[in-house]
Write a protein that binds this DNA or RNA. Structure first.
Lengths: 110, 110
DNA sequence: TTTACATGTAAGTGTTTGCTTACGTATATT
DNA sequence: AATATACGTAAGCAAACACTTACATGTAAA
């Protein structure tokens, strides 16, 4: 993972670890506390905290304090850079081609 | 970057480095030799080779030998895992919401 | 007001990255 | 045949990663 100059915001680096992607996936369903999240992993709780910190630094999640627990919340808009980058390749997707093909075949039938 | 058990195929790790993303972007336009690619970067040519090796291991590019040069070719389908993962979040995109809103306002006008 | 709980942070460690320079190898050119 | 070109690979190294255990802090419960 390449740390950017401000030491933050590296979304691509943040999602490069499968555990962190899985954490984001968990947070799609609902905000969750660290312990709840940690329950889904085998690594130690501090390790989970550290991963969450990376997600936080990347802006992919936010923290809410609720009493003595902290709930993490997904910030899906921060996945924008990934989505935009991948969109450059849209013309290559199979279903895009299929859509084109369908349109073409439809046109040829008309 | 987390190396999978077979030591390969880690697409998310492969695209986590900005230089590697830029290399893929270059290869969208055309197949290119290592030197051509290296011309776009400040790092040494061997460093570029090493990045290309990572892309190759991830299946994101292929090699073609042409005389004494090797041309690298994009394999865009291998970006599928990224696209699929990001698609899980589609409901959160602004334009998705905008599309929904448009539909709703259209419906309310009818 | 002790005690338990939820969590972050520090320190330590082995492993992996990302880069460099030096060198090896195959193909073209002269 | 000798040389130049286009690469890959090896070795070395500083920095970053990913994890662990131990500890600090703040809040809730007894």
């Amino acid at each position: 993972m390449v740390v950017s100059l401000d030491g933050e915001q590296d979304v691509f680096g943040a999602i490069s670890h499968p555990a962190r992607r899985q954490m984001l996936d968990l947070l799609v369903e609902a905000d969750r506390s660290v312990n709840t999240i940690a329950g889904h992993f085998q690594m130690s709780r501090p390790a989970v905290s550290q991963h969450l910190r990376i997600l936080l630094d990347a802006g992919l999640v936010t923290e809410q304090r609720h009493g003595r627990e902290r709930r993490y919340r997904l910030v899906p808009q921060r996945l924008g850079p990934v989505r935009e980058w991948i969109a450059h390749y849209e013309r290559f997707w199979d279903d895009h081609l299929q859509r084109l093909q369908k349109q073409l075949s439809k046109r040829s039938k008309e």
